[in-house]
């Protein structure tokens, strides 16, 4: 892994750094409040490595949930990761041993960044880049979890709103995709279906219906999307 790649991955990971440390700390604080030491926070950040699930997991642990209900809850909360894997089949195809970790660490944020296929400096290796970006993000996440559980109530300043950095990241990636794509049907579908499902099913239950609706919509418009892409390639 050469220096150019490490530097490029670090630079790409910077926008995620603040968000992961803050959200990781939020998780650590909550876990500590249930009586768990920082070792438990680190253990979860290393093995589960899924923000939403770890927040839900704090409540499952706190309530002493059963194995079955924990498994079902995880399935529902993280079902979207199935879709991330599908998008990475092509992108991670040639990654060799790196892909085992890259698939393991495929979070919402890492997925969104890697799908943009950021331009890399000359001499950088995209396979190492994807691997390192995933790793750096997990390191931020672990640091956050540790700090939160270790310091618990000692958070030095009013951090309300700091977690907006994650939302900002998705806004940015949204803007980039908006400008990049030749066919905006998938974007309209993603927005429209999610909003409708949020309205119908509510904040806690809208992800799975959204994913089903989005897939159905994508297949309905498949011909049009593929034609638009083909047209655009002709002009490039």
């Amino acid at each position: 892994m050469n220096k150019v790649t490490v530097k490029a991955a670090f630079k790409a990971s910077l926008p995620i750094m603040a968000g992961y440390i803050v959200l990781g700390m939020g998780f650590g604080v909550l876990l500590a409040a249930k009586g768990y030491s920082f070792w438990w926070a680190i253990l979860m950040c290393v093995t589960v490595f899924s923000g939403t699930m770890q927040y839900v997991g704090v409540n499952l642990l706190g309530a002493g949930a059963s194995v079955v209900s924990t498994a079902i809850m995880t399935l529902m909360v993280n079902a979207r990761h199935l879709f991330y894997g599908i998008s990475m089949l092509e992108r991670y195809k040639d990654m060799g041993w790196r892909k085992w970790y890259a698939f393991f660490g495929l979070t919402d944020e890492t997925y969104s960044l890697i799908c943009l296929e950021p331009r890399l400096p000359k001499g950088a290796d995209r396979r190492d880049f994807n691997f390192l970006l995933t790793l750096m993000n997990q390191i931020y996440w672990i640091i956050g979890g540790f700090l939160g559980a270790f310091l618990a109530s000692l958070i030095p300043f009013n951090s309300a709103g700091l977690d907006f950095s994650m939302t900002a990241l998705f806004v940015i990636i949204f803007v980039e995709q908006w400008e990049l794509t030749h066919c905006r049907i998938p974007i309209y579908l993603g927005l429209g279906v999610s909003l409708v499902c949020l309205f119908i099913f509510g904040a806690d239950n809208f992800l799975i219906p959204s994913m089903i609706g989005i897939s159905a919509g994508l297949f309905i418009f498949r011909k049009r999307i593929e034609n638009a892409e083909r047209e655009a390639q002709k002009h490039d």
Partner: peptide, 15 residues
């Protein structure tokens, strides 16, 4: 699906 999902899913994550 793999090629177009990123566009839809980022919109979904934003929501």
């Amino acid at each position: 699906l793999g090629s177009v999902l990123p566009y839809s899913l980022v919109a979904m994550l934003l929501v």
